[in-house]
Design a protein around this nucleic acid. Structure first.
Lengths: 209, 209
DNA sequence: AATGATTGAGACATCAATGTCTCATCTGAA
DNA sequence: TTCAGATGAGACATTGATGTCTCAATCATT
């Protein structure tokens, strides 16, 4: 069953995101299976971490999809992206820390596509007057992904409550990325449905462990 | 000569921060020495990465020292910390990504001390009314360090200009971490020498590669 | 209960990185 | 020039993880 493979992969992330050089024994034990079964599911170590990376990228791509980052107001799109990506923050943490994946071409391509989508979102937000133009879109993309990874690490280490994750991420990042409200004319982008920055707690969302 | 050891360690960071599983051959080649000399400098691989981690922690501790994070206004202290830690951002990137170091007790202890200092800084800032209290000091600490690491990765990949690093980091992080100026009374902390938040470019600093 | 499939446990060979060694070469000082 | 120290290049054994195998035990289905 294919679901089982993803279960094993998620267990593998829990180990590999902490110790990239973890032995297959540990990964198998963390997944609750034997090393033999692990080998039956994945031909080898390379294939395993490759599939972990692919899973993470697929999840992040799905988050970009469900958040519809290409549409509407950039701030609202980013808030949707926060809610959609926080549940997979640990996968993103693995992606951020495991750079040996960058040797696979297919992973690299998929990675570039997602980063390009992020980049486009920030560029659009800057053109909309929503995001600050003093910070490059590339830096905003990098910083956002790093903070998502940081959320994953923090939750895994028990330093951040899962239910606070989306709020903490959105507030910290948007606080630095948004143009200050007093620095622009009252309504430079009046047609968008972005709500006023009045209730900072309104975007709070729940996140599974 | 002791300086040579640090030179080798810095070269090792350049390789290890990208590929934690790099062979000693690559590290030696990156440092411009032979594998034999590398072994003469460091007894083995474990000792090498341990010393790299220690170097990173020492540098970050030195940044906390020179920034005098324990004194004065919290915002000014954090801006000083940004300037002091950005030059060693790549070391911090290694620390953030290499979690297998957490098996060494001495490294772990040193790490905890620095994180505690960061944590104290943010707590103090929150008590001063400078930093937002909706975001936990633990999260602010984690996020700050992750962004420093992100700066290191971005610079290494050529996605962020070294001279923009301190500004980008300070603006993004402080934008999200500071209490909004309009959300508090005109001068809740009048005794501190924190300048008014009027010239956002004033803290710009230059950073060597 | 019986059967087929799957899994777990362990043994085993392979292989790559590491650790150690020797020797030739290079550098710098006397 | 000569010598002492350090370095680089390479060979070699060791080690540990990996990949592959077999077989007993377990589970599911009938």
């Amino acid at each position: 069953m294919a679901t089982d493979r993803d279960t094993v992969l998620e267990a593998a992330v829990g180990v590999l995101s902490r110790r990239p050089s973890a032995h297959l024994d540990e990964i198998a034990r963390a997944a609750g299976i034997s090393r033999a079964t692990l080998h039956r599911l994945f031909p080898g170590r390379d294939a395993l971490i490759r599939e972990v990376g692919l899973l993470g990228l697929r999840r992040f791509a799905a988050a970009l999809d469900t958040a519809e980052v290409e549409q509407g107001d950039a701030e609202a799109a980013l808030r949707r992206l926060v809610d959609a990506s926080v549940p997979d923050a640990m996968l993103c943490a693995f992606l951020a820390g495991e750079n040996q994946l960058y040797e696979n071409d297919d992973i690299n391509d998929l990675w570039e596509v997602q980063i390009a989508r992020l980049h486009t979102l920030f560029l659009r937000g800057q053109q909309q007057g929503v995001f600050r133009i003093e910070l490059s879109a590339a830096w905003l993309s990098e910083a956002f992904f790093d903070l998502v990874a940081g959320v994953g690490w923090s939750i895994q280490d028990g330093r951040l409550a899962p239910r606070d994750a989306a709020f903490s991420l959105a507030e910290l990042f948007l606080g630095g990325a948004l143009r200050r409200p007093d620095a622009r004319t009252p309504s430079p982008v009046p047609s968008d449905h972005r709500p006023d920055t009045d209730s900072p707690m309104s975007e709070r969302s729940e996140v599974g462990a």
